[in-house]
Design a protein around this nucleic acid. Structure first.
Length: 303
DNA sequence: ACACGTAGAGAACTGGT
DNA sequence: ACCAGCACTCTACGTGT
């Protein structure tokens, strides 16, 4: 996608491309211009047929409340629409209405379960400093688990912890089982076991994320030109077709491809630099790098 | 400074009992 | 349900250029 109104801050090129992750980068030098996608549109729809579009009414719905935030409340003040205090008879009626209304909000065991569980989820998530997107996702996973009857026979806590663990991994901010367990009353083993069952039952696509997703970001942090990036992608796809990538950490493969590409395109980066950009150790890069050289019959000295 | 190698520890998954 | 074995990565250290 090209945007002719914008120039690259690094090299002045007007060739800006946007990838599927929403990162916009310069085609010539690879500089990432904006990595954060801001959704400026309203999330909630306009239901009125005659009014202006874009009316904003109330808060957007959320997975984090058991009724998704779709609730009404009866004002606690005993005033009428004009702000005049009600008489005692009306006050009694409204007190009673409020109580009945509150009871209908949490009407059955499933909703009671959800409201307990989601409160627990919030507690753990905020102690772990998890972003909102991950909280929403884990709440969604938990709801699905309830619908499929996975909670019966297991502890609510365990399923909550498993949902969080899964959501973290899906959101690419993985936490270890121990880390999640530290904030929950359940242990690592139970979370792990529950997680496996939940992810199987929900067919969660927990990212065996492709290394290719990491390459643009690594190249950008290392200020590598576009040429090197496409070279790294080429190396990676060769490696994938030779099944070098199975079972390996995706970041390791991506980092090694970038490192190798940086050597053969004459924009060398040290293993240390690459390892810092990729968040892995030099050792892992070395191992993957060595495998790549052997399997693809590349000798960086030739370049 | 950097590249490269090795050993031991730890985390996560698998399969057997 | 639990344990042992596994493949992988990390830490830490040493060696060579």
């Amino acid at each position: 996608m090209l945007n002719s109104f914008e120039k690259c801050a690094e090299c002045g090129s007007r060739e800006i491309e946007e990838n599927t992750q929403g990162e916009r980068s310069c085609v010539d030098c690879g500089l990432v211009l904006s990595g954060v996608v801001i959704d400026s549109g309203p999330e909630w729809r306009n239901y009125s047929d005659s009014g202006e579009s874009g009316e904003r009414v109330g808060m957007p719905s959320t997975e984090l409340l058991h009724d998704k935030g779709l609730t009404t409340d009866i004002d606690w003040r005993n005033k009428d629409f004009a702000g005049i205090t009600m008489n005692s008879q009306s006050s009694r009626i409204f007190r009673r209405l409020r109580r009945q209304h509150q009871r209908t909000r949490i009407s059955n065991s499933k909703e009671r379960n959800l409201s307990v569980a989601l409160a627990e989820l919030q507690r753990i998530a905020s102690q772990m400093n998890l972003p909102k997107s991950v909280r929403e996702r884990s709440a969604y996973i938990y709801r699905k688990a309830v619908e499929l009857g996975l909670v019966r026979g297991r502890s609510i806590e365990g399923v909550v912890a498993a949902s969080i663990y899964a959501a973290c991994r899906m959101g690419n901010i993985p936490r270890t089982l121990d880390e999640v367990g530290a904030f929950s009353r359940t242990g690592r083993k139970e979370i792990g076991r529950t997680y496996r069952e939940v992810s199987k039952a929900l067919k969660l696509r927990v990212s065996p994320s492709s290394p290719s997703e990491y390459i643009p970001r690594f190249c950008s942090t290392l200020k590598l030109p576009h040429k090197t990036q496409s070279s790294a992608m080429k190396i990676l796809s060769d490696a994938e077709s030779r099944e070098l990538t199975a079972g390996r950490g995706p970041t390791g493969i991506a980092a090694a491809s970038v490192y190798l590409a940086s050597l053969i395109t004459k924009n060398p980066r040290t293993q240390k630099e690459v390892s810092e950009a990729a968040g892995i150790t030099e050792v892992t890069i070395r191992n993957r790098y060595k495998e790549l050289c052997v399997a693809l019959e590349i000798n960086p000295d030739d370049y």
